[in-house]
């Protein structure tokens, strides 16, 4: 067994230190080493976006990231999206508009949508498409997810 390394990074706003194998998938590190199971595995090949997290403020698929590359980074998972005062506007809108059916894509979808609204507070349909087309959903046909994101933008703006 290759050696573990000590990893230091920021997780949902708090400093975190952890001993892991450097090639552990970030997805497994979150789910198994840290017990944060909100981040989902839908494919393990970078296609579905269910494992999306924010790494230094950018959306990435955690199934494609080895633990070593998280060293020193700022990591936000679905567990870090809501605040003490309540749901993130994107989460509230997904709930209100039935944008989450089975809910398996929802954590990744919420992460991607939150990132979009931060970069682009008033997204048009094309912006939403560009931001969310890497998040597969098999339940909704996306119509209500787009509605939710647009509603969240209105409430944020």
């Amino acid at each position: 067994m290759a050696e573990r390394i000590t990893l230091t990074f920021t997780l949902n706003g708090k400093p975190q230190t952890l001993a892991v194998h450097p090639m552990t998938r970030l997805l497994d590190m979150l789910r198994e080493d840290l017990g944060l199971t909100g981040t989902k595995e839908g494919c393990g090949e970078g296609e579905c976006g269910a494992c999306a997290v924010l790494l230094d403020g950018r959306v990435v698929n955690s199934c494609l990231i080895p633990a070593l590359q998280v060293e020193g980074c700022d990591l936000v998972t679905i567990e870090g999206l809501a605040t003490a005062s309540g749901l993130h506007p994107v989460q509230a809108a997904l709930l209100a508009h039935n944008g989450a059916q089975c809910g398996f894509c929802s954590p990744g979808m919420a992460i991607s949508a939150a990132d979009l609204l931060r970069r682009c507070p008033n997204p048009n349909h094309g912006d939403v498409k560009d931001a969310l087309s890497g998040n597969l959903c098999r339940c909704t046909g996306y119509t209500k997810i787009v509605e939710a994101v647009q509603a969240a933008a209105r409430s944020e703006a």
Partner: peptide, 21 residues
């Protein structure tokens, strides 16, 4: 009426436990 999905809040929070969770 369009009642809000009962288990929806847990889902958008990522708090729902599916079998692997």
């Amino acid at each position: 009426q369009s009642a809000i999905r009962k288990e929806g809040r847990a889902k958008v929070l990522g708090a729902t436990q599916y079998t692997a969770d």
